[in-house]
Design a protein around this nucleic acid. Structure first.
Lengths: 246, 246
DNA sequence: TTGGCACTCGTTGCATGCAATTCGCCATTG
DNA sequence: CAATGGCGAATTGCATGCAACGAGTGCCAA
């Protein structure tokens, strides 16, 4: 416990100014979401830190420590952790604390396989259902990726890749399926960090996307699915090569 | 609030005997899970009541009321609700309470479509990966279903159907994918209650399963997928026919 | 020296009180 | 008469204190 410095009066735990402090760590991504609860804020921040790799798989999530860090009581921290447990990003056992989820290799392989199929499914549906303007928007993102792969900016490439996949989710016209795919993507993300340091991977990734984009533009469901499945399968293999320590 | 009858001393809110009372409502399914926390208990109970239809979509979930009902404080109730929100069975908005999830028709259609594809995927994978004994076990469940469909016991038919689908999930050798499929199944379940009152549906369901079982026995992935997709699609159409009020 | 055991400490689980927000109701006004 | 503004009640959100559980440590006995 060790209530050390702060005064901590009830309902006045931290001024808004104080509370801004914590988001300074996450590189300019300050989301000034004012209309949501503290627990929801914490959930979003912690999820982001897990997905972005700031909190590595296996890292302990101490309630009191997080409460101090975010200048709130343990209650909203606990609620945020419970939701993260339910979403699969965090593992917890009663009286034994919570850690960032760290699936064993077999489970991780299953997540990759499921991701491949979900993405393939979305791509196939998108090939059939996207509007003309959506197809053009997808093509535009794809072109951007080519340009970025030449420049060799992994961070930017990653961001636009996310947009690319999100565009396909949206094109599938199934919000629920999109949520499943996105959630799976996020849960796998902490284990593919290393890939984005590999510049050579960018061009290959773009080439794989090319098959998908072509099929989507032509409305060829089977080809779009196959292309996306192959792409994610490459991602999986790439991970398997890089990761000896998983 | 109205602290009416019980004394309610801290840490001694209810004796074990008192706490047994609530589970008597759910028809003999008393799970004497002693080693888990109260919040976890509540989560399981509420999820079961939602899936089983005791709590209908749209029903309000008042924290204080649930706390009284289960003889606990609001804290574990809140944690259970948060987890149910994260799992999609409950919707909640800050300061406005929680209700049993009630997706609009479009979203529900998406859930049915996703379920069809997930089940199809599992069936296809199971056709390739099941052991011989697993295939025989599946066949056995299928035979049981035929017998039950003759007897016309919808409740029992439902239970064995669940076991049938779970056997296919297990045969797919992908725990993560199985979780997705099962979660989706549970989220859709509250909207297909009516179907199990329709005795005629039982025989048709069994006939649809037949295609899947045959394909699985022969290791024919494509046929197993197609069969399962067609089955779930029938389920969806059946729902669409029954439900004017969704 | 080693195995078992009780004790202690740290962390999590739960209860409770207060603060904050929302919504319904009623009065006031155009 | 309708619309709007503010007040009150009810409900949720958060802080805090205490209880319970687990893990580590040191002691005792074999």
């Amino acid at each position: 416990m060790t209530t050390d410095t702060t005064s901590y009066a009830p309902g006045k735990a931290a001024t808004p100014e104080e509370r801004k402090a914590w988001s300074s760590t996450s590189a300019g991504r300050v989301v000034t979401a004012r209309k949501i609860t503290r627990a929801e804020e914490l959930r979003l921040i912690l999820a982001d830190e897990i997905v972005s790799g700031q909190l590595a798989p296996g890292a302990p999530l101490d309630e009191s420590e997080l409460a101090r860090r975010f200048r709130v009581s343990r209650t909203p921290v606990r609620e945020a952790l419970r939701q993260l447990v339910a979403s699969g990003l965090v593992d917890a056992r009663a009286h034994r604390g919570a850690i960032v989820a760290h699936p064993d290799p077999e489970r991780l392989a299953g997540m990759f396989e499921a991701m491949a199929e979900l993405e393939a499914l979305c791509a196939g549906m998108a090939a059939e259902r996207m509007t003309v303007s959506e197809r053009h928007a997808l093509q535009s993102l794809h072109d951007q990726l080519r340009a970025i792969s030449y420049l060799g900016d992994p961070q930017r490439f990653h961001e636009v890749t996310e947009a690319f996949h999100n565009a396909i989710y949206a094109g599938a016209r199934n919000a629920y399926l999109a949520e499943l795919a996105l959630a799976t993507r996020k849960r796998v993300q902490p284990f593919r960090r290393a890939q984005f340091r590999n510049i050579g991977r960018l061009a290959k990734s773009h080439a794989e996307h090319n098959r998908v984009v072509l099929a989507v533009m032509q409305g060829d469901r089977a080809a779009a699915s196959a292309g996306m499945r192959a792409h994610i399968d490459t991602v999986r293999r790439e991970y398997a090569t890089y990761a000896g320590k998983a």
